[in-house]
Design a protein around this nucleic acid. Structure first.
Lengths: 217, 217
DNA sequence: CTGTGTGAAACTCTTCACAGCA
DNA sequence: TGCTGTGAAGAGTTTCACACAG
């Protein structure tokens, strides 16, 4: 209903991805419509927040019917996926890299992992989840050939900055970094950091804070 | 300087984990003191935020010397680790589970992964990163024997809710969930959700938003 | 009624800016 | 001077609560 991209908050973007996944599951169960409180419950948040998030996508539901699942899915996709498929590359095909390939190949048809890289020659040349693993020497050439925009760093910490520099010089514009290192990259590259060890520490901390009580449903 | 645990924000807790890691690295380089802006730079944020976070730990630096690295490390640990080691268990020893074991065993001496579980009998009985993998049938017994408080769910989505129920009934009080499913658990269990596919979608989205410009640093 | 969309309040997190100390 | 600790402002996020619609 509005001018489209008017600035959607990061948190909303994350949740919209979750909504879409849940909507696709419901659609597979032959459901055609859903109310905000039902969707909220399936996603683990509350109805007000769900409606607020959906405001951003510019699709309006009906008070009597709720949201048309199919139309809402398309509206969300129009907002978060771009016009064309986004191509990403993975650097570091260890356990974590392989896990990411599985998750993404199964669940993100609108994203494509175009290639993977590893310094271990035992891995180069192999194909995992449909993605070919190249030597890091070929990184620049392969990234440019695929027109990749996003890089995922799943290498040990000591190698992460060097990989980030290589990605940046090949024209990558966004990085998802699993290495426990703060990357130093130019301002126009978006970086998202996920640190598994810190995440677990956080859970341990809040688990022990006896005063913690979850808010609602 | 204050009454200790007066309520530290989740974001601060995450960053404190990062500060500690960086401080340990600096200590290994024989440095004894550090200023807030140096620590901030190494962690990828700014000095004001770093000082604000450190307020919570109840250790004061000196304007001339900065922070004593060793003392600050201990103060952070006193805040985020409890009195005794926290024990966690891992359910699902696939690629992701194995990656987590590596990360945590290397970098979290104050946490212990007491056991792992998998439904695949080819994996049970084996030992990865010093952690023994059990059959899921033994979950209740092993969790109680180890006094585990935290559970990590790294199984496929369809199995996640069932695993969460088992963990809850064995007395687990906090869950780190990698399955792309909103868990339904009782209010007094803390749940932290990490969804790799959604994380990548988010990076793809912000990478493409040309108007995005990183703030500083 | 029971639902949606949304202004406005409430809450959380980040940044500014400055007093005070060595 | 150049740093720390922190009140206060600002930015971002969530929740409330209500007008309106079928």
């Amino acid at each position: 209903m509005n001018k489209k991209t008017l600035r959607v908050s990061p948190k909303s973007i994350e949740r919209l991805g979750v909504y879409r996944r849940v909507l696709q599951q419901e659609r597979a169960k032959q459901k055609t419509h859903i109310f905000s409180h039902q969707l909220a419950m399936l996603c683990g948040n509350n109805a007000a927040q769900t409606r607020r998030d959906l405001m951003a996508v510019g699709y309006e539901g009906s008070p009597s019917r709720g949201y048309d699942i199919d139309a809402l899915c398309r509206a969300i996709s129009a907002l978060i996926d771009g016009e064309d498929k986004c191509v990403a590359v993975l650097v570091g095909v260890g356990n974590l890299g392989a896990a990411l390939l599985e998750y993404v190949e199964k669940r993100c048809p609108h994203l494509r992992i175009g290639a993977a890289f590893d310094s271990d020659h035992a891995k180069t040349g192999r194909v995992l989840c449909g993605v070919r693993c190249h030597s890091v020497d070929e990184m620049d050439e392969v990234i440019k050939r695929n027109g990749a925009e996003v890089g995922v760093i799943a290498v040990p910490g000591r190698a992460a900055q060097e990989v980030a520099d290589m990605l940046a010089s090949s024209g990558i514009k966004g990085i998802l970094n699993f290495a426990p290192v703060a990357l130093r990259v130019s301002k126009n590259i978006y970086v998202e950091q996920i640190d598994l060890a810190v995440a677990l520490e956080k859970v341990a901390y809040f688990t022990r804070r006896k005063d913690y009580v979850k808010k609602e449903r």
